[in-house]
Design a protein around this nucleic acid. Structure first.
Length: 244
DNA sequence: AATGAGCGG
């Protein structure tokens, strides 16, 4: 019979209680009558040295600073094509006003036949319309001019003003549960339950998008602090995504 | 504790 005793020198206090309790186990076998502490005659004390490398040394720092790509990514260097701000062009506050004007100006600079600045790739067999407007994709509803898509719903973005965020959900809560829970407050436009994309495991929070902001407000008042599946739900107004 | 997925460059 061999007993192995491992001594944790580092972060000893963090050994889980269930393991710490083993200290109280009764000795047995040839050690049955031994006093507390290891007896060299029947016990091998094995000390395991764990070497740890800390990342706070100068070498690593230097490496990081020498990598310009990493630096660029760390600082999130993006430059808007419209206003040169540090956001993507699609998020530019002037996207709807300045953007179209700039495009018009560019079109004016390029009379037909001028192949200097942006050569149009000649793809055999490609539809000719695809390369109009500088190769940009134009949704079917907007082709052949803006006057055509008159009957379409012109809601460009999702309306976030009536969206609430629910946190502290138990991880086996499902969309249908949320639907039941929040439907009494008013018609719901959309429910998003955050899940891990790979495992499908719930991340424990969700967004509920009401049609009316007043309903959302009542949902916050009514459900926040509500006990659900042994947990206390927390409900707040949602912020638009991407806010850190 | 926690703010969604993706597109672009």
């Amino acid at each position: 019979m061999v007993m192995i005793i491992k001594t944790y020198r580092i972060e000893r206090r963090k050994v889980p209680k269930s393991i710490a309790r083993r200290k109280n186990w009764r000795k047995f076998g040839s050690a049955e009558k031994d006093p507390p502490g290891p007896n060299p005659a029947n016990t091998i004390v094995q000390v395991e040295e764990i070497l740890m490398q800390f990342v706070q040394n100068d070498e690593v720092k230097e490496e990081k600073e020498e990598d310009p790509l990493a630096k660029l990514k760390a600082t999130k260097m993006v430059s808007c094509r419209i206003c040169k701000g540090d956001h993507w062009t699609t998020k530019c506050p002037y996207k709807d006003t300045l953007g179209p004007i700039q495009e018009k100006l560019q079109d004016g600079d390029k009379p037909a036949g001028e192949a200097g600045a942006v050569p149009t790739p000649a793809i055999p067999g490609a539809p000719a319309q695809a390369n109009k407007a500088g190769g940009k994709y134009v949704p079917p509803s907007l082709r052949d001019g803006p006057s055509k898509g008159k009957g379409e719903t012109m809601q460009s973005k999702r309306d976030e003003s009536a969206t609430i965020r629910v946190t502290n959900l138990s991880e086996d809560t499902r969309e249908s549960d949320l639907q039941e829970l929040f439907r009494p407050f008013g018609p719901i436009q959309r429910i998003y339950l955050a899940k891990d994309k790979n495992t499908g495991q719930s991340k424990g929070f969700a967004f509920i998008n009401f049609h009316r902001r007043e309903d959302a407000a009542r949902a916050i008042a009514g459900v926040s602090g509500f006990g659900y599946d042994h947990l206390i739900l927390n409900v707040e107004w949602a912020k638009p995504s991407g806010t850190t």
